[in-house]
């Protein structure tokens, strides 16, 4: 049942710009560094002994912001597809459980964001090699910087999807996204428990993997909360 729903969801998001954004997000993040390094490569290379590490951290300074805004945009569009055509009532009157309807939307978005993360890794690597930052490519860090923010952002995905789906007014989830990006930009000052800090991979222990693991855990919890709330609600 979930598979059919997923197929349907991927059909519905056709021509809504999802694939374009999935591609554009990571490309944009790396493109910003292209401009950055293009303009002042010499200066940037002086900033650190480990050029690869420094480059990765530069790329990573935009990853959380792009992730959070991307999540806000994705969740809002996917909820709006049903809202604007009043299709919830039709979808929910199909012989499927409301839980799987919700799970399908979440899975579709989580997959797209995962594709984004893979693309981010590829683009980062390609441009890094192009910049000729040194023989030793730090694959472990590259992997961490590409995928940990994704896992750490899962609670935000759960939260935003929930808000987007239950809001008739899409101004609400978008505003939440704006606040999220303000938080993420201030990550350095935030207490560790704020989920918007997590994609920055900063924490008191200096262990990025903690954020990823916490993200998966709380992501599941918030997902369940949102799903049960959706199931409980009347369909308008």
């Amino acid at each position: 049942m979930l598979r059919q729903l997923l197929v349907a969801d991927f059909l519905k998001i056709k021509r809504k710009g999802f694939w374009l954004l999935t591609f554009l997000g990571p490309l944009g993040v790396v493109a910003l560094q292209m401009v950055n390094y293009g303009l002042r490569k010499d200066y940037l290379l002086q900033q650190s002994d480990n050029d690869w590490e420094y480059y990765l951290s530069n790329v990573h300074s935009f990853t959380p912001l792009a992730l959070i805004l991307g999540i806000a945009i994705f969740t809002s569009i996917i909820a709006n597809i049903e809202n604007e055509t009043n299709a919830w009532k039709q979808l929910v009157s199909l012989p499927v459980s409301k839980m799987s309807v919700y799970l399908s939307k979440f899975t579709a978005l989580a997959s797209l964001l995962l594709v984004s993360s893979i693309l981010l890794m590829v683009f980062t690597l390609l441009f890094g090699v192009f910049l000729d930052l040194g023989e030793e490519i730090p694959y472990v860090e590259l992997f961490q910087y590409s995928f940990y923010p994704y896992f750490a952002a899962l609670p935000i995905l759960s939260l935003q999807l929930w808000i987007a789906i239950v809001s008739k007014n899409q101004g609400i989830p978008i505003t939440t996204g704006v606040l999220g990006v303000v938080f993420a930009y201030s990550a350095y000052y935030l207490p560790d428990w704020m989920i918007w800090k997590w994609p920055s991979l900063m924490n008191a222990w200096g262990e990025p993997v903690v954020n990823a693991l916490l993200g998966v855990g709380l992501g599941c919890v918030l997902y369940l909360v949102g799903m049960f709330d959706f199931v409980r609600r009347d369909v308008k």
């Binding site: 935009f62 805004l69 899409q170």
Partner: peptide, 18 residues
Amino acid sequence: SFAAPFTVNVIFTLPTIL
């Protein structure tokens, strides 16, 4: 939709940081 104008906005706003 809200998302489309917002996407345009994000595309122009993020590079500001640089």
